[in-house]
Structures are given as C-alpha cells and as structure tokens.
Write a protein that binds this DNA or RNA. Structure first.
Lengths: 137, 137
DNA sequence: GTAAACCTGTGAGTTAGACACAGGTCAATC
DNA sequence: GATTGACCTGTGTCTAACTCACAGGTTTAC
C-alpha cells in the first residue's frame, strides 16, 4: 500500500503520513525499483494507533516513547498513564486561557459596537485597541 | 533605551522584543559606534500597542496590517474590526475543540482507572488507547 | 509514440518566539 | 594602564506538526 492509499483509508493527508514516516514513527519498506514506500498491514496498524493517540492529545514525541516501550516488549501503559497526566494539565490550562480570551474578545467587540472609526493621531495607533486595554471592564 | 531595558519595562523577554524588531514591527535606530539598537519613546509606544493587540489574539501579521494602515495615515479601525471577526471564530473553534478534548481525556482517565497494564501483543500496542478509541463512550 | 493525469520523495516554509554563542561594554580592581 | 568578571548585544539556529512547492517518475488514453 502506497502513501496516498493509506492516507485515504485512514482519513488523513498524504503529507501527514509522509511526516510520520520522515520522523521515524512509521517505517515502510522502500521499493528498490521505484523508491516508493510500501506500507505493510503492520504499518497501517501503527498509523491507526498514532491517530488514536493524537486524538487524546499525545504528542508525536509521546508516541515515540510509547512505541519505544512496546517495541522492547514492555508494557507502555505506565508511560501512557504518566504522559496523559501532563497532557491533561496542559489541556486544562489551554481551556482556561481560551475561556478568558474568548470573554475578553466578546467584551471588546461589544464595546467597539458603538464607537466610531478614527484616524491615528499622536501616540494613538488604533483607539479601539488602545482604549480597550486601558479599561478592561 | 536598549532592548533589555525596554523588555523589562513592559514585562516581556528581550527575545520577544528582538523578534518583533527582526520582523520589522519595531524599527529602532542603530547606534553607529555600538551596533546596539536604540528604542525611542515612539517605538516604546508601538511595543505597548503590539502587546495589547496580542492580548486580543491578533497575530503578528494582523498587527503588521494595522501598522501599515496607520502609517499611511488611514484609520486602521475597519481592518481591526474585520480581523477580530476572524480571530473570534478561531477562538470559538479552539474553545469548542478544547472543551471536547478535555471531556474525552477525562473519560479516558476515568475509564483506565480500573484497568491493568498489559504487554503489547499482536496488533495491540497499548490496550488502553486501542480499546478507548473503539468505545468512545 | 506521445500527451495528460496522477503519483512520488525531498526540501523548504509556517508561528511566535526561545536558546546558544561569539564577541562587545562597563565598572572595579590591581 | 591593564585586567578581570559581570553583563549585555546581535545573529543564527531550533522548536511542533504538519503544509506547500517542485522536479521528476508512472500510468492510462489515444
């Protein structure tokens, strides 16, 4: 199975598959006559796993670690449990940040609704942004 | 005012100031004897504006556009209103994505609590991840 | 045989900075 | 005046997770 076919089967772009291959997460065989890469059922399964892990926000480097454990025959589960703990904290942080940002943006847009456009003057570049910063509420 | 002093004054890292300078958002004068960059009060004001815009999720490229308008003497406000509309959509999207991700991760961790570690076998790399994907609820 | 459509791998570009590093500057000491 | 050490500078390179550009190989239709 070549790159485009595999990508289509699992619903990702060929470039994504090429990327995972480039960094060593996938190790397809190289056709001698073609130079084209050939993905075996085992590689297909690995890609499926990568996508599942990605959906839980595991990073590519995390997945490398998981594969490393598994390739040595050890259980990757402790690693997985440890890693998701970090990812969970990150996600929580990002969630809170995004929540605050969203509120700030909504306030700004609302705030700007009744204000006119103005030309820049002196040290005011855009009075919407400048004034909003000074009165965050 | 040199880079470190300016950075400290506005609470960012010198590298951040250098970055904005490198991409042309700031245009300090270059000392002839030193080669060191000198930031005038006007540049200080520009940096303050950049940070305000950044806090509303405007991208560096957005800010470039805003500066471009303002430098031509036109009102950047219409640009600002148009741009924040895009950023608001992005933020909303990111918020929803993060919300879903967070829920998925919580479900996974809960789910894994009662499950043992297992060694990889056949085409199962980590049963926690593999099985969770198959039963998302 | 040839033309067009399609596919490939590799190299480079993307964001918003962080980090490494060779060298310049300045005050304090000898 | 020379020298040490602390501090500062600009520039080049690196990051994550891909995406895009591109030169060239392959396959199919005529």
């Amino acid at each position: 199975m070549h790159v485009r076919q595999l990508a289509k089967m699992l619903g990702v772009s060929p470039d994504t598959v090429r990327y995972y291959t480039r960094i060593g997460l996938l190790e397809p065989q190289k056709s001698i006559e073609n130079g084209y890469k050939f993905y075996s059922p085992n590689e297909q399964n690995r890609l499926r796993f990568i996508l599942s892990a990605r959906d839980l926000s595991f990073s590519v480097d995390d997945i490398k670690q998981i594969f490393h454990k598994a390739d040595e025959g050890e259980s990757p589960c402790p690693t997985v449990r440890r890693l998701i703990d970090n990812r969970l904290h990150e996600t929580e942080q990002r969630f809170q940040d995004t929540l605050r940002l969203r509120a700030r943006m909504h306030t700004a847009v609302e705030n700007w609704g009744g204000k006119p456009d103005k030309k820049p003057s002196g040290n005011v570049i855009c009075h919407l942004i400048d004034e909003f910063t000074k009165t965050p509420e």
